[in-house]
Measured scan of single mutants.
Amino acid sequence: MTFKLIINGKTLKGETTTEAVDAATAEKVLKQYANDNGIDGEWTYDDATKTFTVTE
C-alpha cells in the first residue's frame, strides 16, 4: 500500500510517499524521514486517504 506524508513545516513544506504493509510501518518510516529532515510537530492520520500530516 502507498502512504502519503504531507509536511507543513516552518522551513520545509511538501509531500512524500512510502510503500508499506500497514499504517504502523508507514508511520515509523515517515516519522524517521521527518526526523532526519528536522521536522517536529503534531501528527495526524486519515485512514480513508492513507495520508499522514505533520504540522510544525
Rank of each mutant, 00 (worst) to 15 (best):
T18R: 06
T2N: 08
D22W: 03
Q32I: 08
G14V: 15
T53R: 06
E42V: 14
K50L: 12
K31A: 05
N35Y: 15
F3S: 01
F3I: 03
E19G: 05
A34C: 13
E56P: 10
A24V: 11
A23F: 14
T49E: 07
T16A: 11
I7Q: 02
F52M: 01
G41N: 01
I6C: 06
T44K: 10
L12H: 14
F3D: 02
W43S: 00
D22R: 03
N37R: 15
A48I: 11
T55D: 06
M1D: 11
E27M: 13
L30K: 00
T25E: 11
A48Q: 11
D46I: 04
G9E: 03
L12C: 14
K50S: 06
V54K: 00
K28A: 12
D40N: 14
T18H: 06
E42C: 10
L12Q: 11
F3T: 02
T11I: 12
A34E: 00
A24R: 09
D47H: 11
K4Q: 06
E19Y: 15
V21H: 12
G14M: 15
G41L: 02
A23Y: 13
T49A: 08
A20E: 05
D46E: 08
G14Q: 12
V29L: 13
F52N: 00
I39C: 04
T49M: 06
L5C: 05
M1C: 11
E56V: 13
N35L: 15
Y33P: 00
T44C: 08
K13Q: 12
A23D: 04
T53Q: 07
T25W: 07
K10D: 08
A48F: 10
G9K: 07
T18C: 14
A20H: 03
E15G: 10
T53L: 05
A24F: 10
A26Q: 00
E15P: 04
Y45C: 01
T11W: 13
K10S: 10
K13S: 10
W43M: 04
E56W: 10
T53I: 08
A48W: 09
D47F: 08
A23L: 09
F3N: 01
T18P: 01
K50Y: 08
K50P: 00
T17C: 11
T44H: 12
G38Y: 06
T11P: 04
T16M: 15
I39H: 04
A48S: 10
N8M: 14
A23R: 13
E15N: 08
F3L: 01
G38D: 07
G38C: 08
L12F: 15
D40W: 14
T16H: 15
G38N: 11
V21Y: 12
N37S: 09
T51N: 03
N35M: 15
N37F: 14
D46K: 03
T17H: 09
D22T: 05
E42M: 11
T2C: 11
D22N: 09
D22I: 03
T49C: 04
Y45L: 02
L5D: 01
D46S: 05
L30E: 00
D46F: 04
K31I: 06
D36Q: 11
Q32P: 02
W43P: 00
E56C: 08
E19N: 13
K4G: 04
E27V: 07
M1K: 12
E56S: 08
I39E: 02
V29N: 11
L30S: 01
N37L: 15
N37Y: 14
E15W: 14
D36T: 08
A20C: 08
D46A: 04
D47M: 08
Y45M: 01
K4I: 13
D47N: 10
T18Y: 09
N37V: 14
E42N: 10
T51W: 02
A26P: 00
T51Q: 05
T55A: 06
Y33F: 11
L12K: 12
I7E: 01
I6K: 07
K28F: 09
W43I: 03
I39D: 01
A26N: 00
T53M: 08
G14A: 13
K4H: 12
T49N: 09
G41E: 01
E19D: 10
A26H: 00
A23S: 10
D46Y: 04
E56R: 04
I6T: 05
F52D: 00
G14K: 13
T18E: 03
N37I: 15
K31D: 02
I39V: 11
T53E: 05
W43E: 00
N35Q: 15
T49Y: 05
G14T: 14
E27I: 12
T17E: 10
K10I: 15
E27C: 12
W43G: 00
V54G: 00
V21K: 14
N37H: 15
E42A: 09
T17V: 08
E56G: 05
T16S: 07
T17W: 14
Y33G: 02
M1L: 13
Q32G: 07
A26T: 00
T18W: 09
T11C: 15
K4T: 14
T17A: 08
K31H: 08
E42K: 10
Y33I: 09
V54A: 03
K50R: 15
I39Y: 05
K4S: 06
K28M: 12
L30N: 01
L30W: 04
M1N: 12
Y33H: 04
T11H: 14
A24N: 09
D36R: 09
K13W: 10
T44N: 10
I7F: 13
A24C: 13
A24H: 09
K4N: 06
K13R: 12
T16E: 05
I6P: 00
T25H: 13
F52Y: 06
K31M: 10
D22H: 04
D47Y: 07
I7K: 02
E27A: 10
G41C: 02
I6D: 03
A20D: 03
K28G: 07
V29A: 10
F52K: 00
F3C: 02
T17D: 05
L5V: 04
E19V: 15
T51I: 07
K28R: 13
L5E: 02
T18V: 15
L12Y: 13
W43R: 00
L12M: 14
G9T: 15
Q32R: 12
